[in-house]
Write a protein that binds this DNA or RNA. Structure first.
Length: 515
RNA sequence: GGCCCGUUGGUCAAUCGGUUAAGACGCCUCCCUUUCACGGAGGAAUGAGGGGUUCGACUCCCCUACGGGCUACCA
C-alpha cells in the first residue's frame, strides 16, 4: 500500500443498545487511527427502515464519548465525506446499482417474497436445506435475465417492486487478504446472488459498505468475523465498480462469546447471567424497558476500554493495565487473536477494581458523590473526598462506595445481629454500658483516644479485646467490613458512636437469645 | 446439509521449532490484619485426538473431533 492517508470507520446500525463487541470494534478502529495519525469516521448504517430505532444514534455517540473514543468525522461532526448517514446517501446507491446492471454484473429481480419462499421450498433437499438464489436457480425466477427487455421495462415502469441482485460468476476463486487471518479463499459458486438494492430503494449492507468505503476513502476496513462469509461479495463489488486499486485492507475481528454455553454474546446473556452487555443504560423507546449498561453498573470508562482491548488483543508482554494513550501507542492488528474470547465478568470487575485503586480521590470524587446522591446521601465534597482513600481499595464497582461509605453518614439500616449474638453474654453488655460512660468523658475525640479508652476499660475486666472489637464494629457499621473500628468511631463522632452502641444493646435486650 | 473461521489450565492468555509451557482472573493455603479488603508468599489446574515433517514439535503439514460464524429485500 502506498502511503495512503489512514482512514477507518465504525459503522453501527442504530437499532438499539451498543453492545460490548460493537464498542470493541469502535475501539480497535480508534486505536488504529490514533496510532497512525489517521481519521476515525462514524458512519450510521440506517438502511433498514424496519429496525431503525429513534434515539439510538445519539445514544451511540454518547457511549463513544463516555469511552473517550469520539469519532473525528460523523453525522455530528461533518467532514468532507458526508453525509454520514446512509439513509441520506440513498441516491448514490441506486446509481451505482444501475451501473452494475448496465455492465452485466447485476440484474433486476421481480420475485415476490412468496415466490422466493416457493423456490426455496421447491429446491430444498436433505443435502441442501437452504437453497440459494444463484446461478442454478436464477434461471427459473422472474428477473431481467429470464424476462425479455420489454417485459423488464414494462415491469419497472408500471411500478412493480424490484430488487437489484449481484450476478455471481461461475466457478471463480475470490481471495481475501485479511490482516488477521491471512489469505482466505472463497468459491463464487458458494455465494448467492445477494440483493444489492432493496425494493424500497435502500441499499443492503453489501452495496452500501463498498460504495461508502470507497467514497469516504476508507483505507482499512475492520469489522466482526460474522462478515467474513460475505467478504467475497464485497471484493467482487470493488472490482466490478472499477475501484480495485482503492480497496481497503480488511481485518475481521474475533467474536466475543458467551461466558457459559456457546455462541456469541448477546443482550439476553447479560440479563440471564446478571451482567451488562451494553456500554450504557439503554431505554427501549417503545417498551420503556431499561437495559443496564457498564457505566451505570459502576464501571470507570478507563476500565471498560481496558478490559475490552484485552479481550482478543495483548501487547505480548504480561502488562494488563493500559490507558487509552498507551493502547494507541502499542496497538497493532497483527496481535489480535484469531479465535473468539469468552467474556468473563469476574475479570471485568477486577479491571475496574484496579482502575479504582489507581484513581485518585480527586478523580473519584464526582463519581462517588453521584453514587451517594442517588442513594439519598448528601454530603460535602470535603467529607466524601476525605473518606474515599479509606475505602477505595475495598471497591470493585463504583456502587460499592455506597455500601462502604453509607455508615459514615447514617446509622446502619441493617445490623448483622446474628454475628453479634453468636458469642454474646451478660458481662459484655455490662462492659459496653460502662464504656459508654467513659466515652462521654473523652475530651478529644480521636481514633487513638477512643482506642486507648477501649483498651483501658477492657483491661480492667476479664475480657479480651478481640471478643468485643468485632461486635463493636458490627454495631457501628452493620457488618464485618470497613476500615479500622476506632477510625470509624472517630469519624462518625461521639454522639453517633454512643447512639449506635446503645441501639444494638437495646436490640440485644429486647430480643434475648439464650440458646 | 454446505461454505468459511477457529481450538494452549474453568476463563483471558505468552510462546512465533529447542523453556521446568510465562503472566492475569477465579479457586485453595499461609502471612499481614483482633473486621472486610488491599498487599505479600505459596498451591491445584493447560497444549482436543491421530498421523506425518524434523535431530527436536504447543509451534509446520494432513486427517478427525469439537466450537463458532454465515447460509434474509438484518446488519
Amino acid at each position: 500500500m502506498a502511503d495512503k492517508k489512514i482512514r477507518v470507520r465504525f459503522a453501527p446500525s442504530p437499532t438499539g443498545g451498543l453492545h460490548l463487541g460493537g464498542v470493541r470494534t469502535a475501539l480497535f478502529n480508534y486505536l488504529f487511527a490514533k496510532k497512525h495519525g489517521g481519521t476515525f469516521v462514524l458512519r450510521i448504517e440506517d438502511t433498514d427502515q424496519g429496525r431503525y430505532v429513534k434515539g439510538a444514534e445519539e445514544y451511540i455517540l454518547n457511549c463513544l464519548a463516555w469511552c473517550g473514543i469520539s469519532p473525528d468525522e460523523g453525522p455530528h461532526k461533518q467532514g468532507e465525506f458526508g453525509p454520514y448517514r446512509q439513509s441520506e446517501r440513498k441516491a448514490r446507491y441506486l446509481s451505482y446499482a444501475k451501473q452494475l446492471v448496465q455492465m452485466g454484473y447485476a440484474y433486476y429481480a421481480f420475485d415476490t417474497p412468496e415466490e422466493l419462499d416457493l423456490m426455496r421450498e421447491k429446491f430444498k433437499s436433505s443435502t441442501n436445506p437452504s437453497p440459494q438464489y444463484n446461478a442454478l436457480t436464477r434461471a427459473e425466477m422472474k428477473n431481467s435475465l429470464t424476462l425479455s427487455e420489454d417485459e423488464v421495462t414494462k415491469n419497472i415502469e408500471s411500478g412493480i417492486p424490484y430488487v437489484i441482485r449481484i450476478k455471481m460468476p461461475r466457478a471463480e476463486n475470490i481471495v481475501l487478504n485479511d490482516m488477521i487471518r491471512g489469505e482466505v479463499t472463497f468459491n463464487s459458486d458458494e455465494v448467492d446472488d445477494k440483493v444489492l438494492l432493496k425494493a424500497d430503494g435502500m441499499p443492503t449492507y453489501h452495496l452500501a459498505v463498498v460504495v461508502d468505503d470507497y467514497e469516504m476513502q476508507i483505507s482499512h476496513a475492520f469489522r466482526g468475523e460474522e462478515w467474513l462469509p460475505s467478504a467475497p461479495v464485497h471484493i467482487l463489488l470493488w472490482e466490478y465498480l472499477g475501484w480495485k486499486n482503492q480497496m481497503p485492507q480488511w481485518a475481521h475481528f474475533p467474536l466475543i462469546l458467551k461466558p457459559d454455553g456457546k455462541g456469541k454474546l448477546s443482550k439476553r446473556d447479560g440479563d440471564r447471567l446478571g451482567f451488562p452487555v451494553y456500554a450504557m443504560d439503554w431505554t427501549d423507546p417503545k417498551s420503556g424497558e431499561i437495559t443496564k449498561g457498564f457505566k451505570e453498573m459502576g464501571f470507570l470508562p478507563e476500565a471498560f476500554i481496558n478490559l475490552l482491548a484485552l479481550l482478543g488483543w495483548n501487547d505480548g508482554s504480561s502488562q494488563e493495565i493500559f490507558d487509552l494513550i498507551e493502547l494507541a501507542e502499542k496497538f497493532t492488528i497483527d496481535r489480535i487473536h484469531k479465535g473468539g474470547a469468552k467474556f468473563d465478568f469476574e475479570k471485568a470487575k477486577w479491571f475496574n477494581g484496579e482502575w479504582i485503586k489507581k484513581s485518585s480521590a480527586v478523580e473519584l470524587l464526582p463519581l462517588v458523590k453521584k453514587v451517594l446522591d442517588t442513594n439519598n446521601i448528601n454530603s460535602s465534597e470535603e467529607k466524601i473526598g476525605a473518606l474515599i482513600p479509606l475505602v477505595k481499595d475495598r471497591c470493585q464497582l463504583l456502587n460499592d462506595f455506597y455500601t462502604q461509605l453509607a455508615y459514615f453518614f447514617q446509622d446502619p439500616q441493617e445490623i448483622d445481629m446474628s454475628a453479634i449474638k453468636a458469642k454474646w453474654d451478660e458481662p459484655k453488655t455490662t462492659f459496653l454500658k460502662e464504656w459508654i460512660g467513659d466515652l462521654k468523658n473523652i475530651s478529644e475525640w480521636t481514633p487513638l483516644n477512643v482506642e486507648d479508652s477501649f483498651k483501658q476499660a477492657i483491661a480492667s475486666k476479664q475480657l479480651k479485646a478481640g471478643e468485643l472489637q468485632l461486635p463493636l464494629r458490627i454495631m457501628l457499621v452493620g457488618g464485618k467490613f470497613g476500615p479500622p473500628v476506632f477510625e470509624i468511631a472517630s469519624l462518625i463522632g461521639k454522639e453517633s458512636t454512643v447512639r449506635r452502641i446503645e441501639h444494638s444493646l437495646m436490640l440485644l435486650n429486647s430480643n434475648p437469645d439464650h440458646a
